[in-house]
């Protein structure tokens, strides 16, 4: 769950150019929701994403992840909770680096950057499979620098990269669970620690048993691996920090045909990974076609929040009427 609580952001405060980008905005987005955000220029859509990711600090109000205030968490620390795709197709990848290097960097989001070689065979194979499954023609261009790819290819690659992250360590999972669990955090901590201790104990005992058995080295190794995976899976169930996908007009710079392809890919990735998604767009048709919920911004405020059946039946005319209404109201003021 992700929420804004009375967030206000003013640009050029105290000058003639003062601009209220967000005016006391509150909303809550539930896990797994695919939300489209629509609004005119300067209505506060992009500022919302920037405040979410920590790129900008709000003047007032708070950003909550589950029920934890993350308003003051620095951008690079927050990165593991958010995956972003920008409008500028050059912004999502490191242009002077290879496709595979970019993917490797994305796969360490929230993890450590040690002095080991940047990729190993296993990972490389995984990335190739991933690229193949998305049919982008990139699996044969692993060592191509992303700056020479087409805008659509770069955007698609950025989307793929957005789904990658470093698998959190057990310690991290326990810490996150006791921080982000909604409800009695002390109890949650006890619970997850207990599960961890028991699983570890069971794993150790199983290893002991295994060492007594008379097996070949290779068999032992596979069994050991299986035991560890079992242990690991028990802990992973408690991993609360799924990434939230933030799309900032990510198809606005593409030609209509490519935009359609990238949007289809977006839909596929979001549904397959059950990602909580916020998609900012200018395109009303896209805002209606995609997502389960639509939020409309006007001059720094949310003026409509439509979901469920109402959202499914929404038409472009209705949306246009809503805009006109809002405009008429603001002029009458």
């Amino acid at each position: 769950m992700l929420s804004f609580k009375n967030v206000t952001k003013v640009f050029y405060k105290g000058t003639a150019d003062e601009k209220v980008a967000l005016n006391n905005v509150s909303f809550t987005i539930n896990d797994g929701e695919f939300v489209t955000i629509i609004g005119g220029n300067g209505s506060g859509k992009s500022t919302t994403l920037n405040v979410l990711t920590g790129n900008m600090n709000p003047d007032k109000g708070a950003v909550l992840l589950n029920d934890v205030d993350i308003t003051n968490m620095p951008e690079n620390k927050r990165a593991k909770y958010f995956a972003r795709v920008f409008q500028d197709t050059n912004k999502g990848t490191a242009g002077s680096m290879q496709v595979i290097e970019n993917m490797a960097i994305a796969s360490r989001k929230g993890g450590h950057n040690g002095l080991g070689w940047y990729i190993n065979k296993e990972q490389k194979q995984k990335y190739i499979e991933m690229l193949k499954s998305f049919n982008l023609g990139l699996e044969t261009r692993l060592t191509t620098k992303t700056s020479v790819l087409s805008g659509g290819q770069r955007q698609a690659l950025t989307l793929l990269m957005a789904t990658l992250r470093a698998e959190p360590s057990h310690k991290q999972i326990i810490k996150d669970y006791s921080t982000f669990y909604m409800g009695d955090k002390e109890k949650a901590k006890q619970e997850v620690t207990k599960v961890y201790d028991e699983a570890k104990q069971a794993y150790k005992e199983a290893l002991k048993e295994l060492s007594k058995e008379k097996l070949s080295c290779k068999e032992k190794r596979t069994k050991k691996r299986a035991l560890y995976d079992e242990f690991d899976a028990k802990i992973r169930k408690y991993d609360l920090t799924k990434q939230i996908l933030l799309l900032d007009e990510h198809t606005a710079a593409l030609d209509p045909k490519t935009a359609k392809k990238v949007l289809a890919l977006t839909e596929k990735i979001v549904r397959e990974n059950k990602l909580t998604t916020l998609m900012v767009t200018h395109n009303m048709r896209d805002a209606i076609t995609y997502g389960d919920r639509l939020i409309m911004f006007y001059e720094g405020k949310i003026i409509h929040d439509i979901s469920g059946k109402e959202k499914q039946q929404l038409t472009v005319e209705q949306l246009l009427n809503m805009f006109d209404e809002a405009e008429a109201q603001s002029i009458n003021k």
């Binding site: 951008e75 990165a79 995956a83 912004k91 990848t93 002077s96 680096m97 960097i105 993890g111 950057n113």
Partner: peptide, 20 residues
Amino acid sequence: KYGSSIRATGSNEAMAKANG
């Protein structure tokens, strides 16, 4: 891994930040 994160920083700061 560390070295490539330096290269990413030089190549595209926004991307580097977005990737933690």
